[in-house]
Nucleic acid binder design. Sequence first.
DNA 1: TAGGTTAACTTAACCGATAAAGTTATCGAT
DNA 2: ATCGATAACTTTATCGGTTAAGTTAACCTA
Lengths: 348, 348
Amino acid sequence: MSKPSQITLADIATRLKVSKVTISKALRDHPDISSTTKERVKEVAKELGYFPNYFARNLSSKKSGAIGVLVPKIAHHFFSSIIESIYDTALKHNYEVILMVSQEDSRREALHLHTLLSMRVDGLLISVSKMTPDMSIFREIEKLHIPTVFFDRVLNDLSFSTVTTDDVDGAYTLVSHAIEQGFRKIAHLAGYSHTNIGIHRRQGYERALQERGIGIDKNWIIEGGFAEIDGKKGFQKLLRSGNLPEMIFTVTYPVALGVISAAKEANIKIPEQLDIICFGGSDYNKCVYPSITCVEQPAKDLGEKATLLLLQKIINGEGNSEKHLVLPTQLFRGDTCQPRLKKQNSER
Amino acid sequence: MSKPSQITLADIATRLKVSKVTISKALRDHPDISSTTKERVKEVAKELGYFPNYFARNLSSKKSGAIGVLVPKIAHHFFSSIIESIYDTALKHNYEVILMVSQEDSRREALHLHTLLSMRVDGLLISVSKMTPDMSIFREIEKLHIPTVFFDRVLNDLSFSTVTTDDVDGAYTLVSHAIEQGFRKIAHLAGYSHTNIGIHRRQGYERALQERGIGIDKNWIIEGGFAEIDGKKGFQKLLRSGNLPEMIFTVTYPVALGVISAAKEANIKIPEQLDIICFGGSDYNKCVYPSITCVEQPAKDLGEKATLLLLQKIINGEGNSEKHLVLPTQLFRGDTCQPRLKKQNSER
DNA sequence: TAGGTTAACTTAACCGATAAAGTTATCGAT
DNA sequence: ATCGATAACTTTATCGGTTAAGTTAACCTA
């Protein structure tokens, strides 16, 4: 069956023999309308099962009451946590969320952003894909002066507000911890060097090594993506090189799982024969063996802070003031990266 | 700064000195318009950075080109996979997705469904929360004859189409497998008995035991939710009873992780001292130790099938024909639930 | 008691598109 | 030469609301 036409203001108006504007105002508690009329209107509205047409309302009021969110992935613990937190925060402030997924594809990114713009969202929350971005769409957004906040994966050469994890510090803390536990040969499965998180985590890694006088071996830095498959590939490359490190620091949690999985296949035991640490964890990490020692990303916090910052821009009209929030990570000590004294003795 | 008014059809029209209807038609490749005019229009549209106002378009065309999706959770591997697959499938057919999260709260469920209705979505994809549902909103939807498909968590006493996992069969297969491996004392951390997945998985469990002449011990069936915390609570209850089983079958993957986590705290080794199987897994399960033997849910497939079924209803107008798709699970043999011959010998 | 307020509506205009119903000029056929 | 068809537009109406600008009767004040 075709969709039946739904109840409109006019329906209630004819029923009560008043103008539809009266209905509109009554439902929005406009002072023009007497309280008795308001009551009658609301009663009939409920009785008929009326609910306003979102399109019509927003077309005439020129507000959408919604924020647009663009993420590269959903099925990834980190992003799904952020998304959930964005939804909750937006709801608390009576905003709707329109979510789009680029699937790490920059063409889809542009497509979806256009759709969000056509929906006249009041603001945008964006985390960019890992591909080289198509800058033109972002410049377009810049020109339109739509309140926008980038989170987690940001573009540095644009003048947007950002909410990010303290990637440099997190990586630095984590790798420093590993060094303190006695590890020296630490490889890094890094992210792409054109993404902020890739660059920064690598910087933290390099700084930790340098400060402790450990040389950086370019062969032990392998660039790749952020997914499981990249971990597998990275590990296999290290394995083929015949020069396995004592410790691998991976740019994300999924990459670490990829390494563990590949190591399992290659019959290399973690953490006995090879150890691992990573940037970011998951709720589940603590439940399994080995639980990976990592720095936990403040996913919930990131979503909330980014949303609040955006709402501030929307509501207070602080559209073009540029702010940069950087949130700290927290070290989690799991089963990997345990003190290395015994092993050092037995091996050397 | 306030949002600048964006380019409209009228802007292009005055620029080209034709009517705005000509512009509208030209941009949609309407046969009324000559190809030369179309070219000129498109050129100017691109130059001015025009994109249609989604609200205005849908208000006048009375179509939204969007489907509404309501899920209980996002930050859960199973749901985030389904959601991703819904987004991809919808995109392939040029539909937008409006996603809402109830956070397992039936009041939010009603609220969000009303929002989706007010957005005049062309159809609905719904997975209900674990709370006792507020039926009135679903009856309302039924009356409106909006194409709707329930997936995974469905309501049985309503006449909607559904796409579900074969819960009975999956649980039956999994528990049967455990019995064949030599397990006899099998407890079940079950879901709520008012949800279809809770009921069906328990049915599969009970049938597997009965068919093999193993008595059902009500004390070993513990009802609870679907999250990690429910696994912890369930395990602790079993522990306190002083009568630990050989094997625990949990209603979901997160519940299993809760059990593993609580067992770790209680210094009980899995799978050496206590074994575990669960309904549903995750990509990561294979990477860790112990990888849990489970039946994998066809998350991607579920999302795709549900979306396709809905689109069929929308496009072919098969609004009220009721269909029920049941998708099979697949047994994954992990580190848990290994043959139990040795242990039986050593223990008895 | 005229004049100004105010409460409580109504009418008209508009948001930015689409759909339906005209309007011309052109062209081919009879 | 006339008619009908068609191509290529334009005009008008409409979607379901909101906002701005009237309207009217009642009430208050000087």
